[in-house]
């Protein structure tokens, strides 16, 4: 293995370039971890999972009402933390025609001795049905202020798309109401 003694120490390749390149890779990975957030939103929307779909604005209203078909929409309300709110839908379910517009109220009551701010996040089962369920108006995501003892109706206006696959005849719309003390209501 040992060669003859060398006159000069062997020439080492400069490290600076390689170290810079490796630091760039590390920095790129760090950026990637943050880039995964928009990527996750895109994937969730394309795969129809999570709540990425639910922030959509109103889409084209279908004025074609399919009166021959009836779909049951169930309403479910969850208060995220027990005790702060009474939270329930005004009706347990509605039988609706695809294409027609319906209104439903959810009612929330502040049960604590102080003012509260809350924020509701929607969910729909089956998940694949999100793209057929259009919320024309919704209280979801916006911070809601409640004074002491205040009871308020939170309205939702929705349309079930007439292109809803025929094998779906029942949808469950649920809202989870979270305490959001740091949110600022507009």
């Amino acid at each position: 293995m040992d060669g003859p003694p060398r006159a000069a120490p062997p020439e080492r390749r400069p490290h600076r370039k390689l170290v810079t390149a490796l630091l760039i890779i590390a920095g790129g990975s760090f950026a990637l971890s943050w880039g995964l957030i928009p990527l996750y939103t895109v994937f969730s929307r394309d795969l129809g999972v999570g709540n990425a779909e639910s922030k959509e604005g109103p889409e084209a209203v279908h004025d074609r009402i399919d009166a021959s078909r009836t779909v049951t929409v169930e309403f479910i309300a969850y208060p995220a933390s027990v005790g702060n709110f009474d939270f329930r839908p005004q009706v347990a379910e509605m039988r609706v025609h695809p294409g027609a517009q319906y209104d439903v109220d959810f009612v929330a009551k502040n049960r604590t001795a102080g003012a509260l701010t809350a924020r509701a996040v929607p969910s729909l089962a089956p998940q694949d049905a999100w793209k057929y369920f259009h919320k024309m108006r919704c209280f979801c995501f916006d911070p809601q202020n409640f004074a002491v003892g205040e009871t308020r109706a939170l309205p939702v206006r929705f349309v079930v798309d007439p292109t809803l696959p025929v094998d779906i005849d029942r949808l469950s719309l649920s809202f989870t109401l979270y305490d959001a003390p740091q949110a600022v209501a507009h």
């Binding site: 490796l22 890779i25 590390a26 920095g27 990975s29 760090f30 990637l32 971890s33 943050w34 995964l36």
Partner: peptide
Amino acid sequence: LIAVMPVLAGA
């Protein structure tokens, strides 16, 4: 290591 440790740091 240099590809994934920064991802943990981000998380």
